[in-house]
Design a protein around this nucleic acid. Sequence first.
DNA 1: CTGTATCCTGATAGATACTG
DNA 2: CAGTATCTATCAGGATACAG
Lengths: 111, 111
Amino acid sequence: MYANEFDATMQMIRGKWKILILYALDEDDHRRFNDLQRTLKPVTHKILAEQLQQLLDDGLITRQDFDENPPHVEYHLTPMGQSLVPLLDAICDWGVAHVAPDKMVKLLCDE
Amino acid sequence: MYANEFDATMQMIRGKWKILILYALDEDDHRRFNDLQRTLKPVTHKILAEQLQQLLDDGLITRQDFDENPPHVEYHLTPMGQSLVPLLDAICDWGVAHVAPDKMVKLLCDE
DNA sequence: CTGTATCCTGATAGATACTG
DNA sequence: CAGTATCTATCAGGATACAG
């Protein structure tokens, strides 16, 4: 249960790594667990698994298990997750436009 | 120091009441402290003061002290704060479009 | 009316180790 | 490779009381 529309949207992208996960999946939509962990770098194994689970619960991503050994799992954006991409772009753009570059460790989105 | 553009933007609007404060100021740009507290309702006196201070620090709002007794203070959006409004609209719109209405206690933004 | 200080709680994130 | 469990640290939010 969400307090309102703002709250509903924010709950989905609030987690420290969620936007970065969604952004990574938008760039390249067949990521494996380790692949994501390497990309996001200082993220912890446990935290990544946790945030992926929440994104799954919220219906923003899907999990594809290849049933191999060693395990092979890929994550993808759902249509709902894809619909969030323009919003992520807007968040990125605002940051680029209104926050001094030297206050950011690095830039992620292009343009 | 922010990790990246997403992080920079999110820091500013992450607080539980920040979006609602900005949204309230956008609707009516001469709000007093008590006025805001009544509008946001279950927000605590202390928390409201805290989030206002952070918005001030981030340059999104200004504080106008009328130096009266009893105290009279009004808050306004800065140009930077105003530039955030379209993003808030986008957040609102996405919530309305992608989250079931019966999962929200109430709707705030129009349309 | 506005603002601050103290104390408490739950949520969030991280370090680490273990499982199949 | 992917996932889970335990433990710990930190922070955000809130209840309450007090001050100018």
